[in-house]
Amino acid sequence: MTLETILFILFAGIAATTSVLMITRSNIVIAALFLILNFGALAGLYLLLNAQFLAVTQVIVYAGAIMVLFLFVIMLLKPEHERSIYKIPGMKIFAFAIAFLVFVQLAYLILFSSSSEKVSPDVQASINAGTIETIGRELFTNYILPFEAAGFLLLAATIGALILAKKKIE
């Protein structure tokens, strides 16, 4: 067994377990924490597929920013009474049906689509585009202006947040 296979089994195991744990927890904060773990494991899987940029954005955007937003919303809204949603009749059947449909679709794609052995040049180019090297080079040459503009955008946003957070002027 190569190292890659071992890592794949490890990450895939974590991802599968945490996703099941996430949907079965009744405490919504704990469910959200399992979701973070799941995102982290997915990022590991992306890395194994040589999609480095996707892995990094997965960690920064999903596991970082969006999860913080989730937790804030959960803590602000205190959704205790949301538990009653599980008691709606037919809800579970509906959820199972949706999940089963998605599973069949993915399984069909994986089992019956053409083998990944013979990769067309287009696909190869898109695989290469996902590496940090390519993205970094594009970002600092052809896309340097939008990159810098985005930097100033973030500066303005930071200053704005400071102004809004400060109390009224005396």
Binding site: A149, F152, L153, A156, A157, I159, G160, I163, L164
Partner: peptide, 8 residues
């Protein structure tokens, strides 16, 4: 960039 600065 223009909008965000002017919102604030």
């Amino acid at each position: 960039l223009l909008s965000l600065s002017s919102y604030i």
